[in-house]
Each structure stands twice: as structure tokens, then as C-alpha cells.
């Protein structure tokens, strides 16, 4: 008969073996249909472009060079690819802008929900949750219908006599930003609310007791305590903004591309898969850097969804 300590050891080993077996399906699916293909993208970025899309299996750094530089057709000299740089700049600019605007609007909204009485709080939270889970395409479409030249804003303004010509909002950077703030706002409000819900309002009372003004209470007490929520929300908004595809392609049109559209272009009409791969890897690298910065800041607490 096995001794108790042998039983304990083999039980522990078996437990860990079982845990690997149990997680195997999820790990394999994600490996095959999410992580693994990323390595193929990395490989493709170092291959030569095929004439009709796809790649030729020979090593080439052309894909990477073309991310930021362009080769002159006549004299082979390299110069900065202004078009690509502009798209990178627009993506970063609009993503940061979107993040900041969602904080500006999301912070008071989350605070508003968190300070509602227990009974109605659920309802307000529910109202934020619905857009969170409704189709991003539909919500982008809703914005598109409002801001286009024949949309309700321009129609009303013209009817009211403020303007004779519709204001061109659609197909501008502003349109993309409005759309992204609109679709990603719930992603900011939910983690903010999660950290505000835990806020101990006796601390606010203590602040007022110690002669703090409303602004001082907000800046010195509330904000520091809900900072983890602000950081989590910023990450949740910044990452999808940077990689946004649907919103800029519907609201930005062909001229105001973001990185997502640039990548699509290389796999479509551009027929430059290595360049598309290299841009994809670059985009992922920027996201990873942002995530690492977040992990550094927020300790080991994980990114929460919903």
C-alpha cells in the first residue's frame, strides 16, 4: 500500500497533469487560430511580394523598408514614405484624442452612475452595457447617417437657415474621431465605474472635513483612488482605436486612412503582403509597448473587460 506522502505527491502531479489536459482544447484553438498565424505574419514580412498578391519564398527586407521609406522608381534612392508616415501619425493622433475625449466624457458619466442610489444604479449601468454589446458596425452606421451631408444635422441646420451649404463632416478626421469616441465610450465608462463603485465615500467626507474644496476633493482624493480604472479604460480604448478598421473605413473614406485600412490595402489592391505584414507587426509592437507600460503602472492586476 502506498504511503500517505506518496499519495499526496502523486495526487499533486496528477492534478497538474489534469489541469494541462483540461486547458489543452482552449490553448490549441487559440494557438491555431490566433497566436500561431501571427508568427506566419512575422515570416511573411521578411519575404518578397508576389506579383499577384501573396509572396515569393525568398528573403527580402523590402517589406520592412517600405513601412517608412519609399524607393524611387528611377534612381533607386530611398526617401521617407510621406503617405505612410501621415497614416501612422493620424492613427496615433486620433487614438490619443479618442482616449482623452472618452476620459473627459466617460469620467463624469461613470461617476454619475456610481453615485446613483442602489436601486437605479443597475438601470444606468444597463444603459451603458447595451451599446457595449451592440454591433459596432451598426453604431458606426448610426453616426454616419447623422453626420453625412444629407444627414439630420446638416438638414436641420439648413432648414433653420444657419447655413446654406452642408458642412462637410463625413470623410474627415473629425468624423473618425466622433465615431470612435461614440463607439468606444462604453469601454471607458465600464472600468471607470468598476473602480468608482469601490470608492469609499467616507474618504470624500474626510476630505471635506479637512477643508478641501470640491475641486481639491476631485483632484486629491477621487482621482488618485480611481486611477487604476482610468488606466484600464485608456488601454481598452487606445488599443482598438489604434487598430480600428470599420470606423475609419466608413467615416474616413479612402483619403483619411488609419493603420487598419493601410494594412487592408496591402492585402487587397496594393498586393504587397510583406509590407502589409510588416505594418501589422509594427502595429502590434506599438500595442504591446502600451500594454507593457500599463502592466508596469497597474502592477499585476489584469485588463478587465466588462
Amino acid at each position: 500500500m502506498a504511503s500517505a506522502q506518496e499519495t499526496a505527491l502523486s495526487a499533486e502531479r496528477q492534478d497538474i497533469r489534469n489541469r494541462w489536459l483540461l486547458s489543452a482544447p482552449a490553448l490549441i484553438i487559440i494557438l491555431l487560430a490566433a497566436i500561431g498565424p501571427l508568427f506566419i505574419v512575422l515570416i511573411y514580412s521578411f519575404l518578397a511580394a508576389g506579383p499577384y498578391g501573396d509572396v515569393e519564398w525568398k528573403f527580402s527586407t523590402d517589406g520592412w523598408i517600405s513601412v517608412f521609406l519609399q524607393r524611387d522608381i528611377f534612381d533607386d534612392t530611398l526617401s521617407f514614405a510621406d503617405a505612410h508616415l501621415a497614416i501612422f501619425w493620424r492613427s496615433v493622433k486620433l487614438s490619443i484624442g479618442t482616449t482623452l475625449l472618452t476620459i473627459v466624457f466617460g469620467f463624469p458619466t461613470a461617476y454619475f452612475i456610481a453615485t446613483r442610489p442602489e436601486r437605479t444604479r443597475e438601470m444606468w449601468l444597463f444603459l451603458i452595457t447595451i451599446p457595449f454589446w451592440t454591433n459596432l458596425l451598426i453604431r458606426t452606421f448610426a453616426i454616419l447617417q447623422i453626420i453625412r451631408n444629407e444627414g439630420i444635422i446638416n438638414t436641420l441646420l439648413i432648414k433653420a437657415g444657419f447655413i446654406n451649404q452642408p458642412i462637410q463632416i463625413l470623410f474627415t478626421d473629425t468624423a473618425i474621431m466622433i465615431g470612435m469616441v461614440y463607439v468606444y465610450l462604453p469601454l471607458m465608462v465600464l472600468p471607470l465605474y468598476a473602480s468608482m463603485e469601490k470608492l469609499d465615500f467616507r474618504l470624500v467626507e474626510a476630505g471635506y472635513d479637512l477643508y478641501a474644496s470640491r475641486f481639491a476633493v476631485l483632484r486629491r482624493i477621487i482621482f488618485p483612488l480611481v486611477k487604476p480604472g482610468v488606466i484600464a479604460g485608456s488601454i481598452l480604448v487606445f488599443i482598438p482605436s489604434l487598430g480600428a478598421y470599420v470606423t475609419p473605413s466608413l467615416l474616413g473614406g479612402g483619403k483619411n486612412m488609419m493603420l487598419g485600412n493601410l494594412i487592408e490595402l496591402q492585402f487587397g489592391q496594393g498586393r504587397n503582403w510583406p509590407l502589409g505584414s510588416a505594418i501589422s507587426i509594427t502595429l502590434m509592437a506599438i500595442v504591446m509597448i502600451a500594454l507593457l507600460a500599463y502592466v508596469r503602472n497597474a502592477g499585476s492586476s489584469e485588463v478587465r473587460h466588462g
Partner: peptide, 13 residues
């Protein structure tokens, strides 16, 4: 499980 020793229930470990 004990690291060492026996636990007998009516004589059985």
C-alpha cells in the same frame, strides 16, 4: 495528506 506518520481508524491506516 500527512508528510509523515500514520492515521489509524479502528486499526486500518
Amino acid at each position: 495528506y500527512p508528510t509523515d506518520g500514520q492515521i489509524l481508524l479502528y486499526g486500518q491506516d
